[in-house]
């Protein structure tokens, strides 16, 4: 368990609460998908959500930038505060919210446009840049942050769909950080990737921590242990346990967490 030990020693940055969720419930039609979830997500931290399939971890992630609004049958209650403002307040425009809380999806989903246009899409729709030169700069810096620049700088105009799976996912990350979000949500970002691409993306996540707070949903406990500072374990729509990653993995309080980590459920 050397990874876990390394983790234990990694210092946890001085925290401020970025997102505060209280009594969050989600219903899909008659299906009660999420029950009374309370979580505080800290800034400049990687928070991992783990749990068996269908436990509600992705559902909760999609609550954080109101992507559940696009599912007609979904009903969300409870409160989720971003920097103290309730994101479900009727005055909040989900469009503005999602610029601050970006999202990366399970399957790489580059638009059928050029690499450049994929990254420039967010800044363009939100009107973040004033000139072409400024936009070029944003695109380059985001691609650099996503560790993709060197691989694509000569073919920015070729279609994003032509990249390899790992490159596509890094392109999607570049696209997500181009709107300078404050929180980056990642929904199993490595599940469609091979081990080498996964390692690259994980490395990237660790670097992104310096600027954003990152929330990652993952199936892989090793991955949660490798990249996150805090971990939340979901089971059957409940948040079972939430705490520092090291503690969760070495000394879980709840027997269900222990069963999951040791491979007896899930």
């Amino acid at each position: 368990m050397s990874v876990i030990e390394m983790k234990l020693e990694r210092e946890v940055a001085a925290e401020t609460i970025k997102i505060q969720a209280r009594k969050v419930q989600v219903h899909y039609g008659t299906n009660h998908a999420l029950k009374d979830v309370d979580v505080d997500i800290l800034s400049k931290n990687v928070t991992a959500f783990i749990g068996p399939s269908g436990c509600g971890k992705s559902t909760f992630l999609r609550c954080l930038n109101r992507m559940n609004d696009t599912v007609a049958s979904a009903k969300v209650s409870g409160s989720i505060l971003l920097d103290g403002a309730d994101i479900y307040d009727p005055r909040v425009d989900p469009v503005q919210l999602r610029a601050k809380v970006g999202m990366v999806f399970q399957k790489p989903n580059p638009f059928p446009k050029s690499i450049y246009d994929n990254v420039a899409y967010g800044p363009k729709i939100h009107g973040l840049t004033r000139s072409k030169a400024e936009l070029d700069e944003v695109v380059e810096s985001c691609l650099r942050k996503a560790a993709l620049w060197n691989e694509v700088k000569d073919r920015l105009q070729s279609p994003g769909t032509g990249l390899s799976g790992g490159q596509q996912q890094r392109l999607c990350i570049a696209r997500a950080i181009a709107t300078s979000p404050e929180v980056l949500l990642m929904d199993e970002p490595c599940s469609a990737l091979d081990p080498i691409a996964t390692a690259q993306v994980e490395e990237l996540i660790d670097e992104l921590r310096s600027q954003f707070s990152v929330v990652i949903v993952t199936h892989s406990m090793q991955q949660a242990a490798r990249v996150s500072q805090r971990t939340a374990f979901f089971h059957l729509g409940h948040l079972v346990e939430y705490g520092e990653t090291g503690t969760i993995f070495t000394n879980p309080k709840d027997p269900r967490t222990e069963s999951y980590i040791t491979g007896r459920i899930g």
């Binding site: 971003l82 403002a85 994101i87 307040d89 005055r91 425009d93 469009v95 919210l97």
Partner: peptide
């Protein structure tokens, strides 16, 4: 709370 005040562009 900029979230609560939509800007002109939005």
């Amino acid at each position: 709370h900029p979230l609560l005040m939509p800007d002109a562009r939005t």
